[in-house]
């Protein structure tokens, strides 16, 4: 067993876990944060994307012990319960950037990371290139790209990063 202590969505968390535990398993099964999904489980699809110290990573290919001492943010941490949605979430709702919704949490976490790195004015080309590691098998991406472009702009005028 391995003792870990980390910050998840702003809250300190301590646990004693099997070192084999993947970060995504730890989030979903130990912390019951089930917004982060397991899609392919092989670091291809991006349904499991969370932020580790502010950077998008695939939590299916990260051991929970490797997150010890670090800060994790999941889709649940974008906006407080009951508060208005994060601008990127709102943009996905407004522009219908989803069909089944399975890839959506990963798409949104990737999109927020994209804005942090590439700014608020994202071209379609940039968005599509940056979505290399996020697969959607429903939409054909058109509305996802629209949503991210709109969400990126909206984030410029929001208190939520």
């Amino acid at each position: 067993m391995a003792k870990i202590s980390l910050i998840v969505n702003g809250n300190p968390v301590k646990d004693n876990i099997d070192p084999r535990t993947l970060l995504v398993q730890f989030l979903r099964e130990n912390l019951r944060l089930t917004g982060t999904h397991v899609g392919c489980d092989t670091s291809q699809c991006g349904a499991c994307v969370v932020h580790l110290d502010g950077k998008a990573v695939k939590s299916c290919t990260t051991l929970a012990v490797m997150a010890d001492g670090h800060e994790i943010r999941t889709i649940e941490g974008l906006a407080a319960d009951g508060a208005p949605l994060h601008p990127m979430q709102e943009a996905f709702r407004e522009h219908h950037g989803l069909q089944c919704g399975f890839c959506t949490p990963g798409m949104i976490m990737t999109a927020v990371d994209m804005v942090h790195r590439k700014g608020h004015d994202l071209s379609d080309h940039t968005i599509r290139e940056e979505l290399e590691g996020n697969l959607c098998r429903c939409t054909g991406y058109q509305n996802i790209v629209l949503s991210i472009a709109a969400g990126a702009k909206a984030m410029a005028n929001s208190d939520l990063a």
Binding site: G46, V49, K55, V57, K58, R117, E132
Partner: peptide, 9 residues
């Protein structure tokens, strides 16, 4: 290499 999330690790 890979994709943005892979490049972060």
């Amino acid at each position: 290499i890979g994709d943005p999330a892979v490049r972060h690790r």
